[in-house]
Computed example of a mutant assay.
Amino acid sequence: MEDTIYTKGIYTATIGVRAIDGDQFQGLVSLTRDDGEDADATLYEVEAASGNEEEALEEARALAHRILGEIEL
């Protein structure tokens, strides 16, 4: 699966999915800031587990939009 990337100003959110206990999946958002310095990514996890990868990816997408929406430039 190819990474999906969203940007706002100098911030980049990359969404993904990982398998967790049993047949459950969790959405993830990695947020980086491109301000010319070496900055580590901040990893956000969707709180609820999903029954399939597509649901987890949709949850990660919603979380990425929420995070980027809260950033003030």
Rank of each mutant, 00 (worst) to 15 (best):
M1Y: 10
E2Y: 06
E2A: 11
E2M: 07
E2W: 05
D3Q: 12
D3R: 13
D3K: 11
T4G: 11
Y6I: 09
Y6L: 15
T7Y: 07
K8L: 13
G9C: 12
I10F: 07
I10N: 08
Y11S: 11
T12S: 04
T12V: 05
A13R: 06
T14N: 06
T14F: 02
G16D: 03
G16K: 00
I20W: 04
I20D: 09
D21P: 03
D21T: 10
G22D: 15
G22T: 12
G22F: 14
D23V: 10
D23P: 06
Q24M: 04
Q24Y: 01
Q24P: 02
F25H: 00
F25D: 00
F25C: 01
F25I: 01
F25K: 00
G27P: 03
L28Q: 01
V29Q: 00
L31V: 13
L31I: 13
R33Y: 08
D34W: 02
D35H: 13
D35Q: 14
G36I: 13
G36T: 13
G36R: 14
D38V: 11
D38H: 05
D38L: 09
A39V: 15
A39G: 10
D40F: 07
D40G: 07
T42H: 03
L43I: 14
L43A: 08
L43K: 03
E47Y: 01
E47P: 00
E47C: 02
A49P: 02
S50N: 10
N52R: 04
E53P: 08
E53H: 08
E53D: 15
E53L: 12
E54C: 12
E54D: 14
E54A: 13
E54W: 15
A56S: 14
A56C: 15
A56E: 10
L57A: 05
E58K: 11
E58P: 07
E58V: 13
E59N: 10
E59V: 07
E59G: 09
E59A: 12
R61D: 03
R61W: 01
R61F: 01
A62Y: 06
A62S: 13
L63N: 01
L63W: 00
R66F: 14
R66Y: 13
R66N: 13
R66V: 15
R66G: 14
R66W: 13
I67M: 09
L68E: 09
G69E: 08
E70N: 14
E70M: 14
I71H: 05
E72T: 06
